[in-house]
């Protein structure tokens, strides 16, 4: 669904490329998490998949980005918008400012496509329910908390039913309950709906549970790529400015102190951690 070959991109007025020789293929229905230190190129990768790079930001791009069969560089943004939804890191960048209520805000994209009114209202209410904002449709988007605005931004993209959903830190303002809901919603869209999801996040404990795959970026390059259990337990993770989950940290320390055997993969989730330690705790 997403095919990136030899992508190198440099922002205008910058000398070093933000993305440097990226090769990445994401199949349909995969939930692919992208992690990396700040400045590693995560947001730029999101923009490149959604076409904001280079169409909006200009700059110099070499290589090829193909999404849902379209060459992103050769396709106008308006046309890409039907297939690819981008949720910005900062919800203030997403909310149009041109609509008075949350329901109108979420309907904005569908209105532009001329979707019939009844169909539109049903889709908007379903999207609001999905992100846990069912009761807030009549409020002003600006009267909401940061976390609620972040959900409005997510709903306004989900309502478009994009085949590819690209999200840049969509849970940064959310409490743990909100974070859980967003991760479960995304996993559901990928598994049941076949939506291809590219998710930039900092929260390894949630990625470990819900992602199909984890890609690590460092200085614009893909440096690790594999299943969460493999990537999040990789010893080189900290060298890229990333921290593993406490489960992995505890397991590594226990192995170091001879309290757990060193020949098994280290756990990255609670579910994996319990059996990892149980064998030894009650012999």
């Amino acid at each position: 669904m997403i095919d990136i070959q030899g992508l190198t991109y440099t922002y205008p007025a910058s000398e070093t490329p933000a993305l440097n020789g990226i090769d990445l293929t994401v199949p349909e229905g995969q939930l692919c998490a992208v992690i990396g230190a700040n400045g590693a190129g995560k947001s730029t990768l999101c923009y490149a998949i959604a076409g904001f790079v280079p169409h909006f930001y200009n700059g110099t791009l070499t290589g090829r980005v193909t999404v849902a069969g379209r060459d992103v560089v050769a396709t106008p943004l308006a046309e890409l918008a039907g297939e690819i939804g981008l949720v910005f890191a900062n919800p203030f960048n997403q909310i149009t400012g041109a609509r008075f209520t949350v329901r109108e805000e979420v309907a904005f994209g569908l209105e532009n496509l001329g979707v019939p009114r009844d169909d539109m209202l049903a889709r908007v209410d379903a999207a609001l329910a999905l992100v846990g904002l069912a009761g807030l449709g009549d409020r002003s988007p600006y009267a909401l908390s940061g976390g609620q605005q972040q959900r409005v931004a997510l709903a306004s993209v989900i309502v478009m039913r994009p085949r590819v959903l690209v999200l840049d830190e969509p849970t940064s303002q959310l409490d743990p309950v909100g974070t859980r809901e967003v991760f479960e919603t995304l996993a559901g869209l990928a598994q049941a709906g076949g939506t291809t999801v590219v998710l930039v996040e900092h929260k390894p404990e949630w990625i470990a549970v819900h992602a199909d795959r984890v890609v690590v970026l460092s200085a614009g390059r893909v440096v690790l790529d594999g299943p969460p259990a493999e990537v999040l337990a990789a010893p080189e993770l900290s060298g890229y400015g990333l921290a593993p989950t406490r489960y992995t940290q505890a397991a590594r320390l226990a192995v170091g102190r001879g309290l757990a055997p060193g020949d098994r993969p280290l756990p990255v989730t609670l579910e994996q951690a319990a059996p990892f330690f149980t064998d030894r705790v009650s012999p």
Partner: peptide, 23 residues
């Protein structure tokens, strides 16, 4: 916290706050 959940899942007594305490 993750370590408290892990300790509880393993039936360990107490709420460890740091990795060293858990180990």
């Amino acid at each position: 916290p993750q370590l408290v959940r892990l300790a509880s899942a393993l039936g360990l007594l107490g709420a460890p706050l740091r990795t060293e305490q858990f180990v």
